[in-house]
């Protein structure tokens, strides 16, 4: 069994890796609402679905998710077992707010991930029946159309917005906590990192939420 610090280091490294993934994913998605046609997005989706390097990275990414989730659950149960008898009165006021709910927001993100993968990743790769588009005379899967159709449903849109807000809560604690676990705490930089952590959470969340919102109300 790994030591408690090693487990935390694994959690934080995987977490930071997943944050970089979120940023890449977000920038690709934003092309759908920024660019005037779906072509950029469809070409990017095609590249991400077929490029051999990306395919390898995809396996690494799934690995990252699995490791982060697995150790998150292990830590949760160990921490739970460390206090068999809880307090009658427990004033949690001194904890940083979102740090208390990492396992809960994490579980919600996992549920969201399952829905999201099923609707887009699984559909485009395995289940078939994708709409088709033509770019410069070549046929491509019309991933953009799939996204646009999905987000025309108000229920689906709201589901995404709600889940993404919880992802934001998870992220708010994530970045600065990962640095602390890695031993990066410095009188000069840590105040900045804490602000940056919140900034990152807000930017990523607003960025992702803007996609269903813009599609629903504007596109």
């Amino acid at each position: 069994m790994y030591s408690s610090i090693t487990k935390k280091v694994i959690m934080s490294l995987m977490g930071l890796f997943l944050i970089t993934f979120l940023l890449v994913h977000l920038s690709l998605n934003l092309t759908l609402i920024i660019s005037s046609s779906k072509d950029t997005f469809n070409l990017a989706a095609h590249f991400m679905g077929t490029n051999p390097v990306v395919k390898v990275l995809e396996v690494v990414l799934f690995g990252g998710f699995i490791i982060h989730i697995f150790w998150g659950i292990v830590l949760f149960f160990q921490n739970w077992a460390a206090r068999p008898h809880s307090y009658a009165v427990w004033n949690h006021s001194q904890e940083t707010f979102f740090s208390k709910y990492m396992i809960h927001t994490g579980a919600l993100i996992l549920a969201f991930l399952a829905i999201h993968l099923l609707d887009f990743w699984y559909k485009s790769r395995f289940s078939g029946g994708m709409p088709i588009t033509q770019i410069d005379g070549i046929k491509y899967d019309d991933m953009g159309q799939l996204v646009l159709d999905k987000f025309k449903s108000p229920a689906y849109c709201s589901l995404y917005v709600i889940f993404l807000i919880f992802m934001g809560f998870h992220l708010d604690h994530a970045f600065q906590s990962a640095l602390q676990s890695l031993g990066i705490n410095h009188s000069k930089y840590t105040p900045f990192f804490k602000k940056f952590s919140r900034f990152l959470a807000v930017v990523i969340t607003i960025g992702y939420i803007s996609i269903p919102i813009v599609i629903y109300f504007i596109l």
């Binding site: 921490n79 949690h92 001194q94 940083t96 740090s99 600065q176 906590s177 676990s181």
Partner: peptide, 11 residues
């Protein structure tokens, strides 16, 4: 000794 793992709640 069965102490839990730190999750940086800073309490």
């Amino acid at each position: 000794l069965g102490f839990g793992n730190c999750t940086n709640t800073y309490a």
